[in-house]
Design a protein around this nucleic acid. Structure first.
Length: 902
DNA sequence: CAGTGAGCGAGCTTCCGCTTGACTT
């Protein structure tokens, strides 16, 4: 029987809508995007792979035409959708009504190629009337909106896939750059620079406790605290009067309004001079206090509050919320909207009446306009699901799900409650010191007379010192002219603090305010910059690694427009224009990629970076130039370089501990590290023969042992060294092993021709050496074990030209349909590969020796053949190749070190 | 950042936004 096929984005949504639409409709989901630009080389179709733009999968020379593929994990789902479409007489594309949703609808249309009528259907809340109304009022796909999405997608691809390789070449392999992650990293790095440049200021004031005596009346407390406010009419300086340089800010030259900066002696003498002072109330100012409820949750505010109150990371918050959503407890959790549906407003109001009484219920429902500038509002706010809310106790939930549900429920209910109201009072108390100075103290109070929504929900704060919205401070009921006495007057010292590091929650908040990122990506942005080793977490703080300083500096110097804080906001404006048909996608992408007028395009920026100063980018001076100390971001992590004992530049080096935050690397700390570069080294004891201390430490080529030469050793003396075997580790290597390593090379014996054969460890592993003739050994242990006879046997063989010739195939697959040659699988230096004897092709990520078939092998070899025969090695080419190989080999351990941090 | 000698099948890394399981620990 024919049905109408409805496709939405989320499976949960599909189930729900299916229930509303009833018989005659089959509702399925797309599970997000169904097509995308290929992620990597393995997913890139062969026909575009060899194009100059194949790596981008965007034909930059022909209208930025994108080449989409159905990702591997979506193929079976597409088959399923096609199957359902076969029996359908109508197709409804009911994806979200935003840029991405419109694009998904179009991709579905383009991929499913339906032969039945197609309609676009949209709705913003999942209620039966809304769904039925949407089904009654379909529209067409908005191609301008699709164009805007494609422009966004292509721009992000060009940005990410053009700029990342610059970092691979200039900083470290495997790094990444992107419109969102690079700005997020920059925020963290810039904040650290601010902290490093920050100079603390010390200032003092007086804290007094006053006694209102009989004047206070009966309602309030008798005793109350106050802080010194003015001395002889001049305001006493407080934290906000100081700049980041630790000096008083100059209030535009007006001397009379300049605050007075008290130091400790001044504060102490002033306190002493106030011991006999009598005080009177100079003024009492009372103002009404009013606070409105917070808007219902959207993704970012939920992540922030769950972080503050429940200690959940953004990622945990999202996964707990996902489970709540899937089980029907809350509405969709990836949203930028704070709008509640009519049903939700009614449910919240009903709950307010039930739980708090109608005096807490405003006459009219409250509405919340979006604060998010680029909000797309495809969903509701995050709220308890349903037309009537379950209290947390009624849900039967436990653990994190319970706690998160409770938070969402409280926030939603509170959003439909009355304002909190009260009075805030500011009191000034004056007196004359023994020195004749007139002093005024200030006291502030806040009384909440009607708690309103605060009874249900109070937002957390990021700053532990900040007052919560429901905090009350009661003062006695004082009148102007009342006499009060001071129970105590105490000098109190303070210091200004550097700006705080970002936490996940505050970084996400900052990104949202700058229109960077989307609800579905906020949590993963943090994940990306942590995984790349740009940022690590210390408690809840996000600390930038030195690597991030290097990368951000490169981007700021060479891609200033792309990494500017405003880039995304400007892009959003352009996308809006494309969506409205006012601008053209190709023109905009061309400007971004090729440039126009005085704007340089991305392409020429990238191409112009041949002689970029990688060393300079990685060097950060510590202290002043005379100190000659700098931090360098090396391939092996950050290290310090400073003058040697003889004053030679870069004469000394020292590792910087991985977990030392950049702002703690002061000049003093740097000097200390340079003076004791020992760092990781471990003493193993004294060498039984030389009597010298033997230490194990990490070096350029990995872990090794060496002798420590005495201070008075002649300059020509060289310490013996030896790399650890792969089977050894720095933590466990023994003195005995070290002595053996230091004894290398070992003389195995004398060959028949009179030449000595030695065994040792080198750049490419263990090997034998006879004059200039060397042979690799299979195992490191052979360096100590191999006998002269065995060594002679090795030399009796001709030198192996590569390992390929001698290794046995792992698997034989049969004859190649093209060359007719047998294809075999072999294990090689770069991993497993297939070969027909002439051409070799490495297995790809998804291939394995077990699973590979003759067909797949033939395909790989065909691809390889298409690239032509291996180039004849000219001397120049060989040299270039060698360097490249060396680089990769060296880089490998770095990646490990970086990922270890996370 | 310790200096020690070959000659080898390269190929891949990466973006941002939509969505969930399917994987393994």
């Amino acid at each position: 029987m024919a049905h109408k096929l409805v496709i939405v984005e989320s499976p949960t949504k599909a189930t729900k809508i299916g229930g509303y639409l009833g018989a005659g409709y089959v509702v399925e989901s797309s599970i997000g995007h169904i097509r995308d630009l290929p992620n990597n080389a393995a997913d890139t179709p062969a026909k575009i792979k060899d194009k100059p733009w194949g790596r981008l999968a965007v034909d930059v020379d022909n209208g930025f035409e994108p080449y989409y593929v159905v990702p591997r994990d979506k193929k079976s789902h597409i088959t399923k959708l096609k199957q359902l479409l076969k029996d359908a007489d109508e197709l409804y594309l009911a994806t979200d009504e935003d840029r991405e949703g419109e694009a998904i609808a179009w991709h579905l249309l383009d991929e499913l190629k339906p032969k039945v009528p197609v309609k676009r259907m949209v709705f913003h809340e999942i209620t039966k009337p809304a769904i039925l109304a949407a089904a009654e009022n379909p529209r067409d796909i908005d191609m301008d909106l699709v164009e805007a999405q494609e422009a966004r997608r292509i721009l992000d691809r060009l940005y990410g896939y053009e700029v990342s390789p610059v970092l691979w070449r200039k900083v470290m392999s495997g790094l990444s750059a992107g419109r969102v992650q690079s700005v997020a990293t920059r925020l963290v790095v810039d904040r650290e620079w601010e902290r490093m440049a920050f100079r603390s200021a010390s200032y003092w004031d007086l804290e007094a406790t006053f006694d209102a005596g009989a004047a206070g009346g009966d309602s309030g407390p008798r005793m109350f605290p106050a802080r010194l406010h003015t001395v002889d009419g001049a305001r006493v300086a407080s934290g906000r009067d100081f700049g980041t340089d630790g000096l008083l800010k100059d209030p535009a030259g007006r001397a009379e309004s300049r605050p007075v900066h008290l130091d400790r002696p001044r504060a102490e003498s002033l306190a002493a001079a106030l011991s006999d002072t009598t005080y009177d109330v100079r003024s009492v100012e009372s103002k009404p206090y009013r606070r409105s409820p917070y808007a219902p949750f959207r993704t970012t505010t939920l992540q922030q509050e769950a972080g503050r109150k429940l200690g959940m990371s953004a990622q945990v918050t999202m996964s707990v919320a996902q489970r709540l959503y899937e089980n029907g407890f809350i509405t969709y959790m990836r949203t930028d909207s704070t709008t509640l549906s009519g049903a939700a407003v009614n449910a919240a109001r009903e709950q307010v009446r039930e739980l708090y009484g109608s005096e807490y219920l405003p006459d009219a429902p409250r509405t919340y306009a979006s604060k998010v500038k680029n909000a797309q509002e495809a969903h509701e706010a995050i709220r308890p699901a349903g037309d009537s809310f379950r209290t947390p106790a009624q849900t039967g939930l436990t653990g994190d799900q319970f706690r998160l549900y409770e938070l969402i429920w409280m926030r939603t209910v509170a959003s439909q409650m009355k304002d909190a109201t009260g009075q805030s009072v500011s009191v000034r108390i004056g007196g004359t010191a023994a020195t004749g100075e007139d002093v005024v103290f200030a006291a502030g109070g806040r009384v909440i007379t009607f708690h309103g929504f605060l009874k249900a929900y109070v937002e957390g704060t990021d700053d532990a010192a900040a007052a919560r919205d429901d905090q009350e401070t009661r003062l006695p009921a004082l009148q102007e002219g009342d006499a009060v006495t001071a129970a105590s007057v105490t000098p109190s010292g303070h210091e200004t603090k550097p700006p705080s590091r970002y936490t996940e929650a505050t970084l996400i908040k900052e990104l949202e305010e700058r229109e960077i990122g989307r609800p579905s990506t906020y949590a993963s942005i943090i994940g990306t910059i942590v995984n790349r080793g740009y940022v690590y977490k210390k408690g809840t703080a996000l600390v930038p690694a030195w690597l991030a300083f290097s990368v951000v500096r490169l981007l700021v110097e060479h891609f200033p427009r792309q990494i500017s804080y405003e880039f995304t906001a400007r892009m959003e404006d352009v996308l809006d224009d494309i969506a409205a048909g006012r601008r053209d996608r190709v023109t905009e992408l061309a400007e971004f990629y090729f440039g126009s007028g005085d704007v340089e395009g991305l392409k020429s920026l990238v191409e112009g970076l041949g002689d970029i100063d990688a060393k300079g980018l990685a060097t950060f001076p510590i202290g002043s130039p005379e100190d000659g100390i700098s931090l360098r971001v090396g391939k092996y992590g950050p290290y310090l370089e400073g003058p040697g004992d003889d004053g030679a530049p870069a004469g000394k080096r020292a590792n910087v501990p991985d977990d030392l935050p950049p702002d703690e690397l002061t000049l003093e700390k740097a000097k200390e590290l340079l003076a004791n570069p020992a760092g990781e080294e471990r003493s193993l004891g004294r060498h039984p023969e030389s009597g010298l201390e033997v230490v194990a430490k990490n070096g350029r080529f990995g872990p090794y042992v060496t002798e420590v030469l005495p201070e008075d050793a002649p300059k020509s003396a060289k310490a013996r060294t030896g790399s650890l075997f792969k089977s050894m580790s720095l933590d466990t290597v023994t003195l005995e092993q070290a002595v053996q390593l230091l004894s290398l090379p070992r003389v195995v014996g004398v060959a028949t021709d009179g030449e000595e054969i030695t065994a040792q460890n080198g750049r490419y592993g263990p090997y034998l050496k006879k004059g200039s003739d060397s042979r690799s050994l299979a195992a490191e242990d052979q360096i100590f074990d191999i006998t002269l006879d065995e060594a002679l046997a090795i030399y009796a063989q001709p030198k192996a030209r590569g390992r390929g010739a001698s290794t046995a195939p792992l698997k034989e697959l049969g004859n190649d349909p093209v060359s007719g040659q047998p294809i075999v699988v072999k294990a090689g230096r770069f991993g497993e590969y297939v070969t027909d004897g002439e051409y070799n092709a490495t297995l790809r990520k998804d291939d394995s020796v077990e699973s590979i078939t003759l067909e797949r092998a033939a395909e790989l070899l065909e691809e390889r053949r298409a690239k032509g025969p291996a180039k004849k090695t000219s001397p120049k080419k060989t040299a270039a190749k060698k360097t490249a190989a060396k680089k990769t080999a060296k880089k490998a351990p770095v990646k490990k070190a970086a990922s270890k941090k996370s």
